[in-house]
Nucleic acid binder design. Structure first.
Length: 667
DNA sequence: TTTCAGTCAATAAA
DNA sequence: TTTATTGACTGAAA
C-alpha cells in the first residue's frame, strides 16, 4: 500500500514538474507576444509621425509652389510693363536722335570734331591716321592732352567723300570730353539715364547683334565707342551687370552703347572704319600720291611696323621710333624729288611743304624719343638699361654712362651696344638664361641685410608696386617661362645686384622717402575713402569696396574648379547665382586661380602629382590638370614652394654665367 | 572672342 | 610698418 502510495506521489511530482515547465513556456510566449505588441505599437507610432511629416512637406511644397507661381506672375507683369515702357521709348529715341542731328547741324564745322581718346595711342590695331597729332589736326582740333581719357558721344563722317585726299580724312570720329569743361555736354542725358533704369542684358544683346550684323569687331567698337579694351568689351557684352549693381563709372559704357545704337550714323561710320581696317577699302588709293597721302603712307607703314614689332617681341619703343625716324627721313628724301604738282596736292593750309611737314613729324618723333630715353619717375625701357642703371636718382649724361662703362671694364663693348642697340637686343634676350630663383634669393638677402623695403626697391629699381615685388621675389618663374616683359624685371634685378653702389643708392632713397612720408602724414587724412582723379582735380566719392570671398565661397569655387576648370557661361552664372556673387567675380576667380596654379605649378616639378582629373575632356591638357591638384594649390605652404624652387635653381644655375659674360660685353 | 600674363590696389597677416 | 594675398583690370596672345 505504502509502495503504491509512493508510486502515485512520484508520478504526481513528475506531472507537477511538467506543469511547471509548461507554465514557464507559456510565460515566455506571453513575454514575447508582449514585446511584439510593443514593437508593433512603436512601428505604428513612427508611421504616424512619418505621415505627419509627409503631410507637412506636402503643405510646404504647395506653399512654395504657390509662392513661385506668384513670383512668376509678378515677373511676367514686370516684363510686360518693361516691354510697354520700351515701346513707348522707341518714339523717344527717335525724337532724341532727331534733336541730336538738329543740334549737330547748328554747330559750326569746328565743333563737329573733338579730341579722341588717349587710348588711341596705345592701340596698334587702329590706323595711325586716328592716332597721330596730324590726324587731330586734320580733324580741326589741337593735339589732345595725354592725360585726358575721352569718351565717345557720337560718331560722324565728314561731309565730303569725293575729295582726292586720303579717305581717312572722312573718318573722323566725334568725341567729347568727360573732363570738367566738357562734362556739361553729358549732363542732360546723364540725368535722364539716372532716372531711367537700363536693361543692360537687352542692351548688350542689341549691341552684339548690331556688331555681328555689320561685322564690326569688339576691338574697334571698344576703342571708338566705349574707350575700352577689347577684352573688357568682350566681358561686358558677355556678362553685363544689372543696372542697379553698377557704379556711375560702370554705367558709362552702357550709356554709350545706348547712344551708339540710337545713332545710325555711328554704326555706319564704325562699319566704314572696320572695312578699312580689314583692307576691303584701301587706305591709299591712287598710285600718284599727294603730299598728304605720302605722309599718311609713312604713318601707315609705321603703324604696320609698330604692330609687327609689338607682336614679335615687344621691342623697346626707342628702336621703333628710330625705325620710324629712318623711314620718315627716307620718305622725305623721296618726296622732295617729286614733281611740284604732286607736292601741291590737296593738303592742309597750315602745311608749308611736304618736306617741312615730314620734318615736323621727325621733330615730334625725336621729342617722343627723348621723352622715352629720359623718363621721369619710372625706370627706363629695357633697351636703355643696357647703358644705365635705372636706380639713378637723376637723369644721366653720356659722360656718366661712359664712366660706368669704365668701371665695369667694358667701354668698347658698351659702345658697340650703343650703336646696334636695336638689332643686338633681341638676340641678346633670346640667348639669355638667367637663374631667376638665385637672383630673387640674392635680392631678398640684400634687402633684408640692408633694411630696404620692397616698396622702395620696387619703385626705384623695377618700377613696380610693393605687391608686385612681393610676388616676384616669393614666386619667381623660371626664365624660360617668362615673357619678354617678365624677363625685364629679372634683368633689372641682376643689373642692380651687379651695381656696386646699389644698396647705398637705395638706402638714401629709402631715407628720403621716409622723410617725405613723415612730412606729408598730416595731409594724408582726407585721402580716406576718396581718391583724387588724375587730371581733373575732382574727388571721386564712389569707391567700390573690395570683394572678399568667404571660406565657404572659395571652397565652393575650388570644388567647381576640380569638376570644370574652364567653366561654361552657364556654369559661371549658376555658380554666381548660388553663391550670390557677380558673374564677373566668378569668372575673374577662375582666371586668377588658373593663372596662379600655373604660376605655382611651374616651380614645382618634383611634387607634381599626376591624378586623373574628371576635367580631362576639357580644353586644358591633362598635364596641366595634373598640376592643379592640392600639392600645387596657390595657397600652398611656403616650405614646399622653397623646396621646389631650389630644384629649379639647380637646373638653371649653370647658365647664369652666360649672362655675366654677356653683360660684360664679352659676347 | 576667350584666355593669359602682368600688374595694381585694397586688404589681411606678420 | 612691412609683406603677402587676392579680386580686378589691361593689353596681348591663342
Amino acid at each position: 500500500m505504502m509502495r503504491m502510495m509512493k508510486m502515485f506521489a512520484s508520478r504526481d511530482i513528475r506531472d507537477l514538474h511538467h506543469l511547471e515547465e509548461e507554465v514557464q513556456k507559456l510565460q515566455e510566449v506571453q513575454e514575447r507576444s508582449a514585446n511584439h505588441i510593443a514593437l508593433l505599437q512603436e512601428v505604428q507610432e513612427r508611421s504616424a509621425n512619418h505621415i505627419t511629416l509627409l503631410k507637412e512637406v506636402q503643405e510646404r511644397s504647395a506653399n512654395h509652389i504657390a509662392l513661385l507661381q506668384q513670383q512668376l506672375a509678378n515677373k511676367t507683369q514686370d516684363i510686360q510693363r518693361l516691354q510697354a515702357k520700351l515701346q513707348s521709348q522707341q518714339d523717344y529715341e527717335k525724337i532724341k536722335t532727331e534733336l541730336r542731328t538738329l543740334r549737330a547741324r547748328t554747330q559750326t564745322e569746328d565743333d563737329v570734331f573733338s579730341t579722341p581718346s588717349d587710348s588711341t595711342e596705345n592701340d596698334p590695331e587702329i590706323p595711325r591716321e586716328f592716332k597721330t597729332p596730324e590726324f587731330h589736326h586734320f580733324c580741326g582740333k589741337e593735339e589732345p592732352s595725354s592725360e585726358s581719357k575721352l569718351p565717345v558721344e557720337n560718331m560722324r563722317s565728314s561731309s565730303s567723300s569725293s575729295s582726292s585726299s586720303s579717305v581717312s580724312l572722312h573718318m573722323c570720329v566725334k568725341e567729347e570730353s568727360m573732363s570738367e569743361s566738357d562734362g556739361l555736354l553729358y549732363e542732360d542725358e546723364d540725368e535722364e539715364d539716372e532716372e531711367e533704369e537700363l536693361d543692360t542684358s537687352r542692351l548688350t544683346r542689341r549691341v552684339r547683334e548690331t556688331l555681328q550684323k555689320h561685322s564690326i569687331g569688339q576691338r574697334v567698337f571698344g576703342h571708338f565707342v566705349l574707350g575700352l579694351s577689347q577684352g573688357t568689351v568682350s566681358d561686358i557684352l558677355a556678362r553685363p551687370k544689372p543696372w542697379r549693381t553698377l557704379t556711375r563709372r560702370g554705367r558709362e559704357p552702357f550709356l554709350r552703347m545706348k547712344t551708339f545704337l540710337s545713332d545710325q550714323t555711328s554704326v555706319q561710320t564704325l562699319t566704314d572704319i572696320q572695312e578699312r581696317l580689314r583692307g576691303i577699302i584701301p587706305w591709299v588709293r591712287s598710285p600718284e600720291m599727294s603730299s598728304d597721302q605720302v605722309i599718311r603712307n609713312i604713318l601707315d607703314q609705321n603703324r604696320s611696323k609698330l604692330m609687327d614689332v609689338d607682336g614679335r617681341c615687344q621691342r623697346g619703343s626707342e628702336d621703333v621710333i628710330r625705325d620710324i625716324l629712318h623711314q620718315a627721313k627716307h620718305e622725305m628724301h623721296v618726296t622732295s624729288e617729286m614733281p611740284e604738282e604732286v607736292h601741291c596736292g590737296t593738303r592742309d593750309p597750315s602745311v608749308q611743304s611736304p618736306a617741312d611737314f615730314v620734318q615736323s613729324i621727325i621733330r615730334k618723333v625725336k621729342c617722343e624719343m627723348d621723352e622715352d630715353t629720359h623718363p621721369s619717375g619710372s625706370p627706363a625701357p629695357l633697351s636703355i638699361i643696357t647703358h644705365s642703371f635705372p636706380t639713378d636718382p637723376e637723369p644721366r649724361t653720356q659722360e656718366c654712362i661712359q664712366q660706368e662703362c669704365v668701371q665695369q671694364e667694358c667701354v668698347q663693348q658698351e659702345c658697340v651696344q650703343q650703336v646696334c642697340v636695336g638689332s643686338c637686343e633681341d638676340e641678346i634676350l633670346e640667348s639669355l638664361d638667367l637663374d631667376t630663383v638665385s637672383i630673387t634669393q640674392r635680392v631678398k638677402e640684400a634687402l633684408v641685410l640692408n633694411n630696404i623695403g620692397q616698396r622702395v626697391f620696387g619703385e626705384e629699381v623695377l618700377g613696380l608696386t610693393q605687391s608686385s615685388v612681393s610676388e616676384l621675389l616669393s614666386r619667381p618663374k623660371p626664365w624660360t617661362k617668362l615673357s619678354l616683359k617678365g624677363k625685364e624685371n629679372f634683368i633689372r634685378m641682376h643689373r642692380w645686384l651687379q651695381d656696386p653702389h646699389n644698396v647705398q643708392r637705395l638706402t638714401k632713397t629709402d631715407q628720403r622717402a621716409r622723410l617725405k612720408r613723415d612730412s606729408q602724414r598730416p595731409s594724408d587724412a582726407p585721402g580716406h575713402g576718396f581718391c583724387l582723379s588724375a587730371g581733373s582735380g575732382a574727388f571721386e566719392a564712389i569707391k567700390r569696396p573690395r570683394v572678399v570671398l568667404s571660406a565657404h565661397e572659395k571652397d565652393s569655387l575650388r570644388a567647381a574648379y576640380q569638376l570644370e576648370p574652364y567653366p561654361s557661361q552657364y556654369t559661371i552664372e549658376r555658380l554666381a547665382s548660388q553663391l550670390a556673387l557677380q558673374t564677373s567675380t566668378v569668372s575673374n576667380w577662375f582666371y586668377n586661380y588658373r593663372s596662379r596654379i600655373r604660376r605655382d605649378g611651374l616651380t614645382e616639378p618634383v611634387q607634381t602629382r599626376t591624378v586623373q582629373s574628371p576635367a580631362s575632356s576639357s580644353p586644358v591638357s591633362s598635364g596641366l590638370v595634373s598640376v592643379k591638384q592640392e600639392a600645387c594649390d596657390p595657397e600652398m605652404e611656403e616650405d614646399t614652394h622653397r623646396h621646389t624652387c631650389v630644384s629649379v635653381a639647380v637646373q638653371s644655375v649653370t647658365k647664369a654665367e652666360d649672362l655675366n659674360e654677356l653683360l660684360r660685353g664679352e659676347r
